[in-house]
Design a protein around this nucleic acid. Sequence first.
DNA 1: GGGCCACGTGGACGACATCGACCGGGCGAT
DNA 2: ATCGCCCGGTCGATGTCGTCCACGTGGCCC
Lengths: 146, 146
Amino acid sequence: MDDIDRAILRELQTDGRIAYADLGPKVGLSASAARQRLQRLLDSKVVQVVGVTDPMAMGRQSMALLGISVDGDPRAVADVLAQREEVVYMVLTAGPYDLFAEVVCGQPADLLDLVNDVVRPIDGVTGVETFPYFGIHTHRFLWDVG
Amino acid sequence: MDDIDRAILRELQTDGRIAYADLGPKVGLSASAARQRLQRLLDSKVVQVVGVTDPMAMGRQSMALLGISVDGDPRAVADVLAQREEVVYMVLTAGPYDLFAEVVCGQPADLLDLVNDVVRPIDGVTGVETFPYFGIHTHRFLWDVG
DNA sequence: GGGCCACGTGGACGACATCGACCGGGCGAT
DNA sequence: ATCGCCCGGTCGATGTCGTCCACGTGGCCC
């Protein structure tokens, strides 16, 4: 992991499908070398090139963060929630909540159903705080080293 | 936006650099048609192909969600916070907090500094709740239509 | 110095992206 | 119904690109 690797990640940030022939020169390498480096980064799971969709553009109008309190092992709850396709992001936290989940639903009613019919009934869940939101202000995929 | 588009997005989910020659057949189209569709999706900003890095693998050990309370327009605060590279994700919410930010720092001390020296002093910020986390349980980039 | 390893380079080959020409179904107007 | 149009697909030609391998070079340890 050196400056060149970081330069590669930076380029992938703006265009994940960039050709090696373009990527190489941009980071000061030949195309082959750039390919080898990117391959190494992909193999070691440091980076992952994926298509990220905009929920709004997909007709998803109801998104929320859920702060979930759990009695017992939050990981068990997380494992159950991970099965639901509405759950797109989940972290185990310290602080007032044990688990944070980000959910994307089609309609507000779907969100309500999800929270009440799916999340609350899960064994060990003692409380759910719902923070609906209506748009993403910032979304960066590169966690660059300062 | 039809089943084929969704199939394309699903493929991009597992490999954003998939060749059109492979993508086409996988979604039941010729390579050219697949290319045209993906190009349309990219142009219309429905999807974005990017390299997503793993913060842990980049040596980032201190991550947190910040629940921020604001007196005034939360968007102004969000605009200021968006300048910081540690802030990777931000949504404006309803509920107990006005703004949620996800931050990625190198060291726990950096996180403390960020919250106390950067976030709290911002005009209008009346409170910050910090939820540190130590790993991502689930991360999906495709919010598919059920 | 000698051997080794990691990494970058250059080239050859085959696969692929790209673009234009052609084609067919759906649809509205006449 | 039929004509014309448009959207979206296939097909094919051409040049570019990904892929692989052999080679060169610098650092490092013994």
